[in-house]
Amino acid sequence: MEKKQVSEVQIEQLFKFMRQKYVRYYDVQIELVDHFASAIEAMWEKSPTMTFEQGIDNVYVEFPITGFNDLINEKTVILNKKILSYAWKEMKLYLQFPKIMLTLLLTTLLYLLFSNVQQPMIYVYIIWLITFLGSTYLITQLRNIGSKKQQFLVLNTLLGFQSISLFICTVPPPPQGLDNLSFWSTIGLSILTVFMMIFCIGHYKVARSIFEEWKTQYPQFV
């Protein structure tokens, strides 16, 4: 006897079921749909009269009581850790030879700029803002390319760490005010600005490599 298989209409039903259970990301749905379909087909081998809907219920009870939420949350945490650890790795390169030369040069140039202009804090804030907005724009572009037809969890987490750059943008001016900065404040702000620039470059590079990986996995959505 031929093996009973889940039909195309039933696959659509499974996608609908996932959406009803608040799984809105396609990259999570796709794996769960195949899991449900495979499990239901295996059940049909033992109980051919079981309905498709009963099959869904039987598979669903095997998942934790919180449904698919834990799965999505845990995947988000894993992806965030991956992005952060790759971004730190990228940043560490700027503290090692030869990239450290660029870091030192940039810090010196910023120090010279901040110590030779009137109202240096305004320049500091402008550079921070340009760095933050520039990298956010670039990463958002990547995310948008992939999210035209479907939502992907892996792309949705790309922007997660821009909050670190945003946090730097909210650093208040030193007590001396906007006009004059002490020697140590100027050094500190130059280092912080370079740190932010390197972090944004690292974050963008990681986002880019995750996006490239996504493109090879889901070429139909590019």
Partner: peptide, 27 residues
């Protein structure tokens, strides 16, 4: 299932696993 998929995703994120997609039947 609640333990398997997070473990698979973690191993994938750590670079120990790679994934590929294939059309099987209608999915």
């Amino acid at each position: 299932e609640g333990a398997l998929y997070p473990s698979l995703h973690k191993l994938e994120a750590e670079g120990h696993l790679q994934v590929e997609f294939e059309q099987v039947n209608n999915r």
